[in-house]
Amino acid sequence: MIEILQYGFMQRAFIAGMLIALVCATIGVFLVLRRMALLGDGLAHISFGGIAAGMFFNVYPLVSALAFSVLGALGIQKLKQMKVYGDAAIAIFFSFGLAIGVVLVSLSHGFNADLFSYLFGSILAVSETDILLILGVGIATLAALLLFYKELFYASFDEESAQAAGIPVGRLNTMLIVLTAVAVVLSMRIVGILLVSSFIAIPASTALLMRRSFKQTIVIAAAIAIMSVIVGLVLAYYMDLAAGGAIVLVLVAVFSAALLHTKLHAR
């Protein structure tokens, strides 16, 4: 355990992984309760276009991915306001982002392992710059969630009453999906584009099985996510596994155990 922390890349993976877990699990509780668990997946695919664009035009890929993801999030919100169904709006932008990515990849006649590191995550590829970006933006995202915690809670529970009480529900919804867009991009370095939504959907769904208060649900979701990152990274290091996959398998194992526990106790 001590040995594993001697390596710079493992230290970076732990720091980034735990912060991302905290941010995504918190956002996840709000999204899962709003039946928007797959929004993260959609935004991750949109940001694939951003990664490819970054590589093609020689821009720092996480920054171009952030731009694609946030613009995609705002676009989805805009389409919803124009009466396009929410899941269809996600599907449209999802395909759009992915198509841009595929076209750019074909134009450059294939990128290389670098692109794969974004698709599947690679802790070895997490650079000092990545860490600084993840820390800075991750902490800002967390601060925004904490500052608007009670309003997000109210609007998730009962949008109509929250609106009648003068809470700016529309702007809060936009903020939540923009924060999701940001969280997704931060996560892709560790778990990869294809597995990003796991951090959003699984810890929240596991915590919801425990039937606690709202505050406890968020704390439990965050704890499950952070613990899964630690266990997953340790397993990945000692068993030479892909870190993203290992973390997600741990998350699924915890969820399954919680589900089994609930089923047994329900009888």
């Binding site: 009480a165 809470i167 208060s213």
Partner: peptide, 15 residues
């Protein structure tokens, strides 16, 4: 929905 009686009633104070 994961909310206690107290959490729901406290929403009334948010505004």
């Amino acid at each position: 929905f994961p909310a206690t009686v107290f959490e729901v009633a406290s929403m009334g104070r948010f505004p």
